[in-house]
Design a protein around this nucleic acid. Structure first.
Lengths: 241, 241
DNA sequence: CAGTCGTTTCGGCCGCCGCCGAAGCGTCGT
DNA sequence: ACGACGCTTCGGCGGCGGCCGAAACGACTG
């Protein structure tokens, strides 16, 4: 019935998978999951490889359509090509083995705690805080989980009060669950998740910690999230700063 | 700030990706996307490799948690480990380059047409028919696309009339968009998509074409889909049988 | 204009991994 | 009990691909 032709029939899965099958390239994508653009040298340093090696990897990733590049002067900035790529990386991370191992240094442990507490996941919020926001929205009837992941009318109004406008139409699902790799529970992604995260930055609810993916909930953010979603202060403040 | 430790920090993406980075293993997963269990020899023949080679690949895939195995007598049946794996494979396929190339033989072209018309995608319906069903459900207010992918109250009732019960609770989203790799448009997946597909088989609306993923819409199916969703007969019948 | 720095190209080394065939083992049918 | 069949193990071959360092290029800096 079917000989070797099964190979040529469908889409070339392996070609895409191969791009992520290398520890260094996967590390690049994981780093870029913060949604920002990095330079080639930054990525090389981040993963501890030679600049020449990074160049080759970036060529492969850009050529394969996973990354988009933008050249400015002598710098080459790269970022994830789009939300679909981010979702792929997330899916992969959710299935990947927990590569635990005790943190090598104290500062590494601190960094891990900061990430576990609150961070960006491509263009939305994740970590303890991200999951707590999602849970609170479900509890208040703003999000619907039982019949698919959707935004209720009340949720739509709630966003309107915040001044958050969600780009309607478009291929991207407004609401999408994204499995949190520290909490192991879904948090809010999709167009709404992105818009909400953007608002949180704009309104000064959260701010970046250095140049990492970790974010800090500001005093204003604590007040807003407590007032609007009833989150407890205990959740919003990291135990050890 | 961060040295080579970036490698050991996050989840080991590359380990999972490496499993799918081989043409043969990817072909196995693509074949298993029909949701059924295959024997090792079937897969080996399907991809045109030696049995010993297939064994090694299957060990890797099972060991990596992508496949589940069930042994019966001298047969070893394997299937995708779960919906998360199916989603990963789908995401990958959606991003993968269209490996077109003119079909080698006439029968191959026929098979491709059959697949493009109607097929199973893991545990739900895809192809022209799958997309048409999804579109019709949206048009009739049974599915909600604008504010996230969700089932409306009317949709819930509609399923009830059919006698379809959707397993509530559970981690799996009830409704999920799955990008169709022939139509390039989303169709209905998730728990509801699976339940609806199961019903279509049970009620005799559709039946498998040989041992492929392709399905045929029966006369009863045409009648039911026309009556309940207003699908046109033209869509439901393949041009060249 | 010279120096610095980010990026790129090239050559070469090394290890990993997919492939096969042959042989062995367990299960099923006769 | 015997052969047929499906799966597995093993050894060996070959190729792909990631890594580096050296050298070149081009853009910015002073």
């Amino acid at each position: 019935m079917d000989t070797t032709q099964a190979r040529a029939a469908g889409p070339d899965l392996a070609a895409v998978a191969r791009l992520l099958a290398d520890g260094t390239r996967a590390g690049f994508c994981l780093a870029l999951l913060d949604g920002r653009a990095w330079t080639a040298a930054e990525l090389a340093r981040h993963l501890g490889v030679a600049a020449s090696t990074a160049t080759e990897h970036l060529h492969a990733l850009v050529g394969g359509g996973l990354l988009a590049e933008e050249r400015q002067g002598r710098h080459r900035y790269v970022r994830l090509a789009g939300p679909e790529v981010a979702q792929l990386v997330e899916d992969l991370a959710a299935l990947a083995p927990r590569r635990a191992g005790p943190p090598a240094t104290l500062s590494a442990a601190g960094r891990r705690d900061a990430l576990a507490h609150a961070r960006t996941c491509y263009d939305h919020l994740a970590g303890t805080v991200g999951v707590a926001i999602t849970d609170a929205m479900v509890e208040r009837g703003l999000l619907e989980l039982a019949h698919g992941f959707g935004l209720t009318a009340a949720g739509h109004d709630w966003l309107g009060e915040l001044g958050v406008t969600v780009p309607a139409g478009g291929r991207r699902p407004a609401v999408r669950p994204c499995l949190d790799w520290t909490e192991r529970r879904p948090h809010l992604a999709g167009a709404v998740g992105a818009a909400l995260c953007r608002h949180a930055f704009d309104a000064g609810w959260i701010s970046r910690v250095g140049s990492t993916r970790a974010v800090l909930v500001t005093a204003a953010g604590r007040a807003a999230l407590t007032a609007r979603l009833g989150l407890s202060d205990r959740l919003l403040v990291r135990s050890r700063a």
